[in-house]
């Protein structure tokens, strides 16, 4: 070993492990699965068993009737994402997983807010709805229901604005995502 091992890129000192890293951001995983009974409970059970938290979850059909898409968001600050995806890949019914980078995908979520909106404050609420490009889908003497679509940041911002008027209840779908450009998700 006369040749200096410190400059040799293969000396043991220069070997680094690059896994198990917590990225510190939210990851949107889009998972293509076989459209078979029980697949969702396999995915959900895996998360529960391994102690991974699901922040949001959306499931629906794709253009292929044999396949469904599960979109879920996971906090990369809490969980090593590579371990999450590797465990998911072990499920036989899971065909493909994409961990969508922010910027390379379009993400949307739909939410419905039931807001207490008596005549006196209705105009102000409607103004906010307009700014967020929401839609009023139901109106009564005391309340209105607003439908709003966007990234979860936009929905969170709307939530913050509207809450002081009196939020009766809210329902959200969880995010779905699709990659930008020609590439398949």
């Amino acid at each position: 070993m006369a040749d200096s091992p410190t400059t040799d890129p293969l000396s043991l000192e220069n070997l680094h492990a690059s896994v198990g890293i917590r990225t510190g951001r939210t990851h949107v995983l889009t998972i293509l699965v076989e459209n078979k009974p029980g697949v969702l409970s396999r995915v959900a059970g895996l998360f529960a068993r391994r102690g991974f938290n699901i922040d949001t979850l959306a499931v629906g059909p794709t253009d292929d009737p044999d396949l469904s898409r599960i979109t879920l968001t996971v906090d990369g600050a809490v969980h090593p994402i590579d371990q999450v995806t590797k465990q998911l890949h072990k499920l036989i019914n899971v065909i493909k997983i994409r961990d969508l980078e922010p910027g390379e995908a379009v993400q949307r979520e739909l939410a419905m807010f039931k807001i207490s909106a008596e005549a006196t404050q209705r105009a102000e609420v409607m103004q906010i709805v307009q700014i967020f490009r929401g839609k009023i889908v139901d109106l009564s003497h005391l309340t209105m229901i607003v439908e709003i679509t966007g990234t979860n940041e936009k929905i969170a911002a709307f939530d913050e604005m509207i809450r002081p008027f009196g939020l009766v209840e809210m329902a959200r779908t969880g995010e779905i995502a699709i990659s930008r450009g020609r590439a398949e998700t």
Binding site: L15, H16, A17, V19, G20, D82, Q83, K86, H89, K90
Partner: peptide
């Protein structure tokens, strides 16, 4: 340092980070 040979990718770096998986 660890060389980890396994047929199951999920085992690699599950408990101990592998330098050469």
């Amino acid at each position: 340092k660890f060389i980890h040979i396994d047929i199951d990718p999920a085992e690699i770096s599950k408990n101990v980070p592998a330098h050469i998986p």
